[in-house]
Write a protein that binds this DNA or RNA. Structure first.
Length: 501
RNA sequence: GGGUCCUUAGCUCAGUUGGCCAGAGCAGCGGACUUUUAAUCCGAAGGUCCUGGGUUCGAGUCCCAGAGGACCCA
């Protein structure tokens, strides 16, 4: 890491650079110019100005283009003594400013106060320079905002990975690819929202601060509510509140929200991440699977122009329908046994040992099974695959299958070997749900700190009646990784969690 | 939790088996230049070699500990 990342630890040389820039701001002030004026007279975003000139060239190629006022950050500055070229950037593009001593007169001197990274406004006609670059032939320039610190080097961009994450604004200034990637992430979330809206789903917001975070197997972050002097937890899932809304009669709801899990940090794990959950009354998990296929095909097409997106050395094909395989068959295929023949902790431990899978300490049957599937099944699921019908033991919120009471109507969608989505035919029998929670409490007492807590109000809601419902959860960060061929979740999160300096 | 690798100027990077005063490009500073676009040319600067110990006549380089980061494994 570098000194500049530690606030207040600038080296002497960097402080010199900063004071030189401050001196330039003072020079402007002395000349009666505010280096931080409140507004600009901009007439066109840069991209629009470029279009305006191209259109103008079609009709009257010989004449100068119309006058414009453009504004942006100085990306490059080439001063030739009596003429200078300034590259200005905004979010829509880059344009060259042609500033000459003759045209600017007295104002030419002000150019000395401009540095790379400053925001500048220029007004004048659009022209093509002798070398063919569309330019604004400035008859006036103005400072819009003086930058006191130098930008990263222009040619190589900002390479230091740590600085790119910690000071993302520098990454965005210096690296077009990073900006494009994070823009794409936004387009993915936006496409997902559009997809859900178009299907008649109502977007809602549910509480982040909860008495007891439920709806998933994860450790929560703990906080304190001063006003009531009560403990609170940050949500680990959206599930239980969205189902209350199904009880309330909103038949199609979804939420795209941040959830928090006080667990590992890694290439695919950030402690706070963005989850989509949706619930649809009168649907089951098969209907949800079809919706997921349609959503991913839509998003891939919207974002990349194709249902086949590059992934590593190959590609992922999101063309529906995706492969479907039951958990029973998948385990048979990759482990060679029917896992239902291993119903006890001891038997499952033996199966893990036989397959060379390390046995986690204090694990119940569910955790052992989960470990086996993570190690021996999931990595095989590279192309989009629905893994169907999970053991009831690891699915306390899902409805039992009609053909086997130890299994539930649940799928997880695997892509690239990772879990991307999780869905159930939701358990709507309040008595069964209470028993499932009670079983979770027994696991908790036995030492499983990820077991669910009994949410009494949620049970009461179910007792008021919930229609048959299909529910879905999907990790938006992982989706963004898959759609942008990113190897690290940090690349698709603007401000990933980093250790405190 | 374990292992491997990385950290040198504002930025991007060199730095030999341990050996003179730690280098370059960009940016910045002074100067030249009226069509450049990684502008060019001349000049002068700019360093807590991540931090702290140790070995040594001598450490950016070797050893130990720590910080931050990357990757792999559990």
């Amino acid at each position: 890491m570098t000194e500049s990342q530690q606030p207040g630890s600038d080296t002497r040389y960097l402080r010199e650079i900063i004071s030189e820039r401050q001196a330039k701001a003072d020079t402007l002030r002395t000349a009666g110019v505010d280096p931080y004026p409140p507004r600009t007279g901009r007439t066109h975003p840069i991209g629009e100005a470029l279009e305006v000139f191209r259109a103008h060239e079609q009709t009257s190629p010989e004449a100068d283009g119309p006058d414009v006022i453009v504004a942006g950050r100085i990306a490059a500055l080439r001063n030739m003594g009596r003429i200078a070229f300034v590259d200005l950037q905004d979010d829509t593009g880059q344009i060259q400013i042609l500033a000459s001593k003759r045209a600017l007169g007295e104002a030419w001197k002000l150019l000395d106060a401009f540095d790379l990274g400053d925001f500048l406004e220029a007004s004048g006609p659009l022209i093509r320079s002798r070398r063919g670059e569309i330019s604004v032939q400035a008859n006036a320039v103005a400072m819009l905002s003086k930058a006191l610190r130098p930008p990263p080097e222009k040619y190589h961009g900002l390479q230091d990975i740590e600085t790119r994450y910690r000071q993302r604004y520098l990454d965005l200034i210096a690296n077009d690819e990073a900006k494009e990637l994070l823009r794409t992430r936004s387009r993915i979330v936006s496409a997902m929202r559009r997809f859900m809206d178009d299907r008649g789903f109502l977007e809602v917001e549910t509480p982040v601060l909860q008495s007891e975070a439920g709806g998933a197997a994860a450790r929560p972050f703990l906080t304190h509510l001063n006003a009531l002097d009560e403990p609170r937890q940050l949500r680990i899932a959206l599930e239980l509140h969205l189902k209350r809304l199904i009880v309330g009669g909103f038949d199609r709801v979804y939420e795209i929200g941040r959830i928090f899990r006080n667990e590992g940090i890694g290439n695919r794990w950030n402690p706070e991440f963005t989850m989509l959950e949706s619930y649809e009354a009168y649907a089951d998990y098969h209907g949800v699977a079809e919706m997921v296929e349609a959503a991913l095909a839509y998003i891939a097409t919207e974002v990349t122009g194709s249902m086949c997106v590059p992934w590593g050395d190959g590609e992922i094909d999101f063309t529906p329908p995706f492969a479907r395989v039951t958990m029973v068959d998948a385990v048979k295929q990759h482990v060679g046994v029917d896992f239902r023949d291993y119903p006890t902790i001891e038997a499952m431990e033996g199966l893990l040992r036989e397959n060379g899978v390390a046995i986690p300490p204090d694990a119940g049957w569910g955790k052992l099974f989960d470990e086996l599937v993570s190690e021996r099944v999931e990595p095989h699921l590279q192309q989009p695959t629905f893994l169907l019908d999970y053991p009831l033991a690891i699915s306390p919120l899902a409805k039992r299958t009609e053909y086997d009471e130890t299994l539930v109507e649940r799928f997880e969608l695997f892509v690239g070997g990772w879990e991307l989505a999780n869905a159930y035919t939701e358990l709507n029998d309040p008595v069964d749900q209470r028993q499932r929670f009670e079983e979770q409490l027994r696991l908790k007492d036995a030492g499983d700190d990820e077991a669910e807590l009994l949410d009494e109000d949620f049970i009461i809601a179910l007792e008021h009646g919930m229609p048959p419902t299909g529910g879905l959860g999907m990790g938006m960060d992982r989706l963004a990784m898959l759609m942008t061929n990113s190897q690290s979740i940090r690349d698709v999160i603007l401000f990933p969690l980093m250790r405190k300096l």
